[in-house]
Simulated scan of single mutants.
Amino acid sequence: MSLSRDSFSDLLTRLVTGVLIAAVGLAAVWAGHPWFSLLVVAIVAVLIWELARMLDAGPKRSLMLGGLAAGLLLAAKLLPVGLGLPLLMLAGIAGIGVLDRNRTLFLVLTVLIMLASFGLMIHRDEFGVTWMLWLVLVVAVTDIFGYFAGRIFGGPKFWPRVSPKKTWSGTTAGWIGAAVVGWAFMAVTNSGIELIGVSVALSMASQMGDIAESAVKRRAGVKDSSALLPGHGGLWDRFDGMLGAALVLLIVESLTRFPPVPGGM
Protein backbone atom coordinates (compact mmCIF):
# COMPACT_ATOMS: atom_id res chain seq x y z
CA MET A 1 0.00 0.00 0.00
CA SER A 2 1.46 3.39 -0.96
CA LEU A 3 0.10 6.91 -0.92
CA SER A 4 1.16 9.50 -3.46
CA ARG A 5 2.10 12.93 -2.17
CA ASP A 6 -1.08 14.49 -3.52
CA SER A 7 -3.47 11.69 -2.56
CA PHE A 8 -5.14 14.01 -0.06
CA SER A 9 -3.98 17.36 -1.49
CA ASP A 10 -7.53 18.58 -2.01
CA LEU A 11 -8.90 17.18 1.24
CA LEU A 12 -8.95 20.43 3.26
CA THR A 13 -10.71 22.40 0.53
CA ARG A 14 -13.21 19.60 -0.02
CA LEU A 15 -13.79 19.35 3.72
CA VAL A 16 -14.49 23.06 4.25
CA THR A 17 -16.82 23.26 1.26
CA GLY A 18 -18.50 20.01 2.27
CA VAL A 19 -19.14 21.26 5.81
CA LEU A 20 -20.75 24.45 4.50
CA ILE A 21 -22.94 22.50 2.08
CA ALA A 22 -23.91 20.08 4.84
CA ALA A 23 -24.81 22.92 7.23
CA VAL A 24 -27.14 24.55 4.72
CA GLY A 25 -28.63 21.22 3.68
CA LEU A 26 -29.23 19.96 7.21
CA ALA A 27 -30.82 23.25 8.24
CA ALA A 28 -33.23 22.99 5.31
CA VAL A 29 -33.94 19.33 6.08
CA TRP A 30 -34.76 20.22 9.66
CA ALA A 31 -36.95 23.18 8.66
CA GLY A 32 -38.92 21.19 6.09
CA HIS A 33 -41.38 22.79 3.69
CA PRO A 34 -41.16 25.45 2.33
CA TRP A 35 -37.43 25.93 3.04
CA PHE A 36 -36.35 22.47 1.98
CA SER A 37 -38.48 22.66 -1.16
CA LEU A 38 -37.05 26.06 -2.05
CA LEU A 39 -33.51 24.77 -1.58
CA VAL A 40 -34.20 21.82 -3.89
CA VAL A 41 -35.70 24.19 -6.47
CA ALA A 42 -32.61 26.41 -6.32
CA ILE A 43 -30.32 23.40 -6.68
CA VAL A 44 -32.26 22.19 -9.72
CA ALA A 45 -31.92 25.60 -11.35
CA VAL A 46 -28.14 25.31 -11.06
CA LEU A 47 -28.04 21.64 -12.09
CA ILE A 48 -29.95 22.23 -15.32
CA TRP A 49 -27.88 25.34 -16.01
CA GLU A 50 -24.70 23.28 -15.61
CA LEU A 51 -26.05 20.48 -17.79
CA ALA A 52 -27.12 22.86 -20.55
CA ARG A 53 -23.71 24.58 -20.49
CA MET A 54 -21.91 21.26 -20.79
CA LEU A 55 -24.11 20.34 -23.75
CA ASP A 56 -23.28 23.61 -25.55
CA ALA A 57 -26.59 25.39 -25.12
CA GLY A 58 -24.81 28.73 -24.69
CA PRO A 59 -24.88 31.13 -21.70
CA LYS A 60 -28.31 32.71 -22.27
CA ARG A 61 -30.08 29.49 -23.22
CA SER A 62 -28.52 27.68 -20.26
CA LEU A 63 -29.79 30.31 -17.84
CA MET A 64 -33.22 30.18 -19.43
CA LEU A 65 -33.44 26.39 -19.17
CA GLY A 66 -32.24 26.45 -15.56
CA GLY A 67 -34.80 29.06 -14.59
CA LEU A 68 -37.57 27.25 -16.48
CA ALA A 69 -36.78 23.94 -14.75
CA ALA A 70 -36.84 25.61 -11.33
CA GLY A 71 -40.15 27.31 -12.01
CA LEU A 72 -41.76 24.12 -13.29
CA LEU A 73 -40.50 22.11 -10.29
CA LEU A 74 -41.89 24.67 -7.87
CA ALA A 75 -45.23 24.67 -9.68
CA ALA A 76 -45.32 20.86 -9.65
CA LYS A 77 -44.72 20.90 -5.88
CA LEU A 78 -47.57 23.33 -5.27
CA LEU A 79 -50.06 21.48 -7.48
CA PRO A 80 -51.67 18.09 -6.79
CA VAL A 81 -49.22 15.36 -7.84
CA GLY A 82 -51.23 14.24 -10.86
CA LEU A 83 -51.39 17.77 -12.24
CA GLY A 84 -47.75 18.50 -11.48
CA LEU A 85 -46.24 15.46 -13.23
CA PRO A 86 -46.54 16.88 -16.79
CA LEU A 87 -44.57 19.92 -15.67
CA LEU A 88 -41.68 17.67 -14.63
CA MET A 89 -41.58 16.29 -18.18
CA LEU A 90 -41.89 19.72 -19.79
CA ALA A 91 -38.50 20.97 -18.61
CA GLY A 92 -36.70 18.30 -20.62
CA ILE A 93 -38.97 18.67 -23.63
CA ALA A 94 -38.22 22.40 -23.72
CA GLY A 95 -34.59 21.59 -24.43
CA ILE A 96 -35.52 20.00 -27.75
CA GLY A 97 -36.48 23.39 -29.11
CA VAL A 98 -33.55 25.21 -27.55
CA LEU A 99 -30.47 23.02 -28.02
CA ASP A 100 -28.83 22.63 -31.41
CA ARG A 101 -27.42 19.20 -30.50
CA ASN A 102 -27.38 16.68 -27.63
CA ARG A 103 -31.16 17.05 -27.42
CA THR A 104 -31.84 13.42 -26.46
CA LEU A 105 -29.22 13.45 -23.72
CA PHE A 106 -30.57 16.70 -22.29
CA LEU A 107 -34.15 15.42 -22.44
CA VAL A 108 -33.41 12.17 -20.61
CA LEU A 109 -31.13 13.65 -17.96
CA THR A 110 -33.39 16.62 -17.25
CA VAL A 111 -36.46 14.42 -16.77
CA LEU A 112 -34.48 12.17 -14.41
CA ILE A 113 -33.18 15.18 -12.45
CA MET A 114 -36.68 16.62 -12.16
CA LEU A 115 -38.18 13.31 -11.00
CA ALA A 116 -35.38 12.71 -8.48
CA SER A 117 -35.71 16.24 -7.08
CA PHE A 118 -39.49 15.95 -6.84
CA GLY A 119 -39.02 12.61 -5.10
CA LEU A 120 -36.70 14.25 -2.56
CA MET A 121 -39.35 16.80 -1.64
CA ILE A 122 -42.05 14.13 -1.36
CA HIS A 123 -39.74 11.95 0.76
CA ARG A 124 -39.13 14.80 3.23
CA ASP A 125 -42.84 15.60 3.42
CA GLU A 126 -44.00 12.01 3.83
CA PHE A 127 -41.32 10.51 6.09
CA GLY A 128 -39.87 13.43 8.00
CA VAL A 129 -36.44 14.38 9.26
CA THR A 130 -35.32 10.92 10.42
CA TRP A 131 -35.65 9.24 7.05
CA MET A 132 -34.29 12.23 5.20
CA LEU A 133 -31.18 12.06 7.38
CA TRP A 134 -30.93 8.33 6.65
CA LEU A 135 -30.89 9.05 2.91
CA VAL A 136 -28.32 11.82 3.30
CA LEU A 137 -26.08 9.59 5.42
CA VAL A 138 -26.28 6.68 2.96
CA VAL A 139 -25.13 8.94 0.13
CA ALA A 140 -22.53 10.78 2.22
CA VAL A 141 -21.00 7.62 3.70
CA THR A 142 -20.87 6.03 0.25
CA ASP A 143 -18.91 9.01 -1.00
CA ILE A 144 -16.65 9.34 2.06
CA PHE A 145 -15.82 5.65 2.37
CA GLY A 146 -15.22 5.47 -1.37
CA TYR A 147 -12.94 8.52 -1.29
CA PHE A 148 -10.70 7.27 1.51
CA ALA A 149 -10.66 3.58 0.56
CA GLY A 150 -9.88 4.41 -3.04
CA ARG A 151 -6.93 6.58 -2.10
CA ILE A 152 -5.61 4.36 0.68
CA PHE A 153 -6.02 0.93 -0.91
CA GLY A 154 -6.18 1.79 -4.61
CA GLY A 155 -6.31 -1.33 -6.75
CA PRO A 156 -8.17 -2.09 -9.97
CA LYS A 157 -10.20 0.68 -11.52
CA PHE A 158 -13.98 0.30 -11.59
CA TRP A 159 -14.59 1.82 -15.03
CA PRO A 160 -11.47 3.72 -16.11
CA ARG A 161 -12.82 4.84 -19.46
CA VAL A 162 -15.65 6.76 -17.79
CA SER A 163 -14.39 7.49 -14.26
CA PRO A 164 -10.58 7.13 -14.10
CA LYS A 165 -10.30 7.67 -10.32
CA LYS A 166 -13.01 5.27 -9.16
CA THR A 167 -11.67 1.94 -7.86
CA TRP A 168 -13.27 -1.34 -6.89
CA SER A 169 -11.96 -0.88 -3.34
CA GLY A 170 -13.69 2.48 -3.00
CA THR A 171 -16.87 1.20 -4.62
CA THR A 172 -17.07 -1.79 -2.29
CA ALA A 173 -16.25 0.34 0.74
CA GLY A 174 -19.20 2.56 -0.14
CA TRP A 175 -21.54 -0.44 -0.10
CA ILE A 176 -20.19 -1.55 3.28
CA GLY A 177 -20.61 1.94 4.73
CA ALA A 178 -24.20 2.13 3.47
CA ALA A 179 -24.96 -1.26 5.01
CA VAL A 180 -23.68 0.02 8.36
CA VAL A 181 -25.92 3.08 8.09
CA GLY A 182 -28.87 0.83 7.26
CA TRP A 183 -28.11 -1.43 10.22
CA ALA A 184 -27.84 1.57 12.59
CA PHE A 185 -31.18 3.03 11.49
CA MET A 186 -32.77 -0.42 11.60
CA ALA A 187 -31.77 -0.68 15.25
CA VAL A 188 -32.81 2.85 16.18
CA THR A 189 -36.15 2.90 14.35
CA ASN A 190 -37.08 -0.76 14.85
CA SER A 191 -37.34 -1.24 11.09
CA GLY A 192 -37.03 -4.52 9.21
CA ILE A 193 -33.73 -6.01 8.09
CA GLU A 194 -34.66 -5.14 4.50
CA LEU A 195 -33.53 -1.61 5.33
CA ILE A 196 -29.93 -2.81 5.02
CA GLY A 197 -30.59 -4.06 1.50
CA VAL A 198 -32.38 -0.85 0.56
CA SER A 199 -29.44 1.17 1.90
CA VAL A 200 -26.93 -0.80 -0.17
CA ALA A 201 -29.14 -0.47 -3.27
CA LEU A 202 -29.28 3.30 -2.79
CA SER A 203 -25.51 3.31 -2.35
CA MET A 204 -25.18 1.58 -5.71
CA ALA A 205 -27.65 4.03 -7.26
CA SER A 206 -25.62 6.89 -5.80
CA GLN A 207 -22.50 5.54 -7.47
CA MET A 208 -24.37 5.12 -10.75
CA GLY A 209 -25.41 8.75 -10.52
CA ASP A 210 -21.76 9.67 -10.11
CA ILE A 211 -20.75 7.52 -13.09
CA ALA A 212 -23.54 8.96 -15.25
CA GLU A 213 -22.32 12.47 -14.55
CA SER A 214 -18.73 11.43 -15.28
CA ALA A 215 -19.87 10.09 -18.65
CA VAL A 216 -21.57 13.38 -19.48
CA LYS A 217 -18.46 15.37 -18.50
CA ARG A 218 -16.25 13.10 -20.57
CA ARG A 219 -18.54 13.55 -23.56
CA ALA A 220 -18.50 17.31 -23.05
CA GLY A 221 -14.72 17.34 -22.55
CA VAL A 222 -14.80 19.07 -19.16
CA LYS A 223 -13.32 18.15 -15.79
CA ASP A 224 -16.13 19.59 -13.63
CA SER A 225 -19.72 20.57 -14.30
CA SER A 226 -18.78 24.14 -13.25
CA ALA A 227 -16.48 25.90 -10.79
CA LEU A 228 -19.05 26.99 -8.22
CA LEU A 229 -17.83 24.83 -5.31
CA PRO A 230 -14.11 24.94 -4.36
CA GLY A 231 -12.70 21.44 -4.11
CA HIS A 232 -15.83 19.87 -5.57
CA GLY A 233 -16.29 21.55 -8.95
CA GLY A 234 -19.92 22.22 -9.74
CA LEU A 235 -23.14 21.57 -7.91
CA TRP A 236 -23.84 18.51 -10.04
CA ASP A 237 -20.43 17.14 -9.02
CA ARG A 238 -21.67 17.28 -5.44
CA PHE A 239 -25.26 16.13 -5.91
CA ASP A 240 -24.89 13.47 -8.62
CA GLY A 241 -25.00 10.67 -6.04
CA MET A 242 -28.03 12.11 -4.25
CA LEU A 243 -29.91 12.31 -7.55
CA GLY A 244 -29.24 8.66 -8.32
CA ALA A 245 -30.24 7.53 -4.85
CA ALA A 246 -33.37 9.71 -4.75
CA LEU A 247 -34.54 8.37 -8.10
CA VAL A 248 -34.26 4.75 -6.96
CA LEU A 249 -35.81 5.58 -3.59
CA LEU A 250 -38.82 7.05 -5.40
CA ILE A 251 -39.27 3.67 -7.10
CA VAL A 252 -38.73 1.77 -3.83
CA GLU A 253 -41.38 3.81 -2.03
CA SER A 254 -43.81 3.24 -4.92
CA LEU A 255 -43.35 -0.53 -5.03
CA THR A 256 -42.79 -1.53 -1.40
CA ARG A 257 -43.74 -0.60 2.12
CA PHE A 258 -41.38 2.03 3.46
CA PRO A 259 -39.86 2.06 5.98
CA PRO A 260 -39.55 -1.74 6.08
CA VAL A 261 -41.23 -3.44 9.00
CA PRO A 262 -39.81 -6.43 10.90
CA GLY A 263 -40.81 -9.66 9.23
CA GLY A 264 -41.30 -8.26 5.73
CA MET A 265 -42.13 -5.21 3.67
Results as ranks from 00 to 15, higher is better:
Asp6His: 05
Phe8Ala: 12
Leu15His: 04
Val24Met: 00
Val29Trp: 02
His33Cys: 04
Val40Ser: 03
Val40Ala: 09
Ile43Ser: 04
Ile43Gly: 02
Ile48Cys: 11
Arg53Ile: 03
Gly58Arg: 07
Gly67Met: 10
Leu73Cys: 07
Ala76Thr: 03
Ala76Pro: 01
Pro80Tyr: 09
Val81Arg: 11
Leu87Glu: 13
Leu88Arg: 04
Met89Pro: 07
Gly92Glu: 03
Gly92Tyr: 04
Ile96His: 10
Asn102Arg: 14
Asn102Trp: 14
Leu109Lys: 05
Phe118Ala: 15
Leu120Cys: 14
Ile122His: 14
Trp131Pro: 14
Leu133Asn: 13
Val136Tyr: 06
Val138Ile: 15
Val141Pro: 11
Ile144Glu: 02
Gly150Asn: 08
Val162Ser: 02
Trp168Lys: 08
Ile176Lys: 07
Gly177Thr: 03
Gly177Ile: 01
Thr189Arg: 09
Ser191Tyr: 09
Met208Leu: 15
Ala215Trp: 15
Val216Ala: 11
Val216Lys: 12
Arg219His: 15
Ala220Ile: 11
Asp224Pro: 00
Ser225Thr: 06
Leu235Lys: 01
Arg238Ser: 00
Phe239Asp: 00
Met242Ser: 00
Ile251Arg: 05
Glu253Asn: 10
Phe258Leu: 05
Pro260Leu: 02
Val261Ile: 13
Pro262Ala: 08
Gly263Ser: 03
Met265Leu: 10
